[in-house]
């Protein structure tokens, strides 16, 4: 699969080292439809001369074909992407993978549980909920971050707080922070949840997801109603190279979103 050349049309810094790029196709073919993707899928973004990195979609699919990706500068590729300025080009392959099962939200309470950068792959689900595309009874967002200055999409968070049930928890903060200080499992534990009628979508550091899953199970959310987005080192993105093999699964092809019931054994194997 050959990358398509895109251009950075907008660039914004979420907080130092984490940024959001809006991309538009450089030479869109008139008869070609814009890229369509499902929430939870990802693209391989190619920093020319450096390499590719798997980055989830963090915006809405739009008719103009613009793509939005939120990225943390962590390795050589993402640091090269961070250096891109508006107007500069990069390669895009995608979309890849299996996203969030939006059909599972119909008639249920949706618990969106995000940690740190994990909010980015869940943002399209939040948009879907706000636009009434989910047919859910209610959408609740639990968002944990390191500190108030390391929250993603701060302006949107303020709006979301008025539109859906939002709990933000930071590990470290001072008395001026109006939300919870502690860990994300605290507000999750305190929440009144109709477990049997809920579906949970989790994305964040694996250790955070493991602790949140324990709380969800205690609250009666069935393992079959818990979905999480996994992350491993992806290269080819089509299940051929084996870099992201995890048990019998390839994260890029069989995931990144998995049902907890299906992957529980693999989460408990420490060397995977």
């Amino acid at each position: 699969m050959i990358p398509t050349v895109y251009r950075v049309s907008e660039r914004s810094v979420e907080y130092p080292g984490t940024f959001t790029l809006k991309l538009e196709a450089e030479n869109p073919e008139p008869d070609k439809l814009p890229m369509r993707f499902a929430p939870g899928q990802f693209n391989m973004l190619y920093a020319f001369g450096v390499g590719e990195s798997a980055i989830s979609f963090s915006g809405l699919g739009s008719d103009d074909g613009n793509l939005i990706h939120t990225i943390r500068a962590q390795g050589n590729v993402t640091r090269a992407l961070e250096r891109l300025k508006a107007g500069e080009s990069l390669g895009v392959r995608g979309p890849f993978g299996i996203g969030w099962p939006l059909h599972a939200t119909v008639g249920r309470e949706v618990l969106i549980i995000a940690g740190g950068l994990g909010l980015a792959p869940l943002r399209p689900v939040i948009y879907a909920g706000l636009l009434g595309h989910l047919a859910a009874i209610r959408v609740r967002l639990f968002y944990g971050a390191r500190r108030p200055s390391e929250l993603l999409y701060r302006e949107e968070l303020a709006q979301w707080g008025q539109q859906l049930n939002l709990e933000i928890s930071v590990d470290h903060g001072d008395g001026t922070w109006p939300g919870h200080i502690g860990v994300i499992t605290d507000p999750l534990q305190a929440a009144q949840i109709d477990g049997a009628n809920s579906v949970a979508f989790l994305c964040g550091p694996e250790i955070m997801m493991r602790f949140c899953i324990q709380v969800l199970l205690r609250k009666g959310v069935p393992a079959s109603s818990i979905y999480l987005s996994m992350e491993r080192n992806m290269k080819c993105a089509i299940g051929l190279c084996g870099h992201c093999q995890w048990g019998p699964n390839f994260i890029c092809k069989d995931g990144p979103v998995f049902c907890y019931e299906d992957i529980r054994p693999w989460l408990q194997i420490r060397s995977l």
Binding site: G51, E52, G116, R146, P205, E231
Partner: peptide
């Protein structure tokens, strides 16, 4: 857990 040591495998 939200620090760089727990942020997965981004290249």
């Amino acid at each position: 857990i939200y620090g760089p040591d727990h942020q997965g495998h981004t290249a």
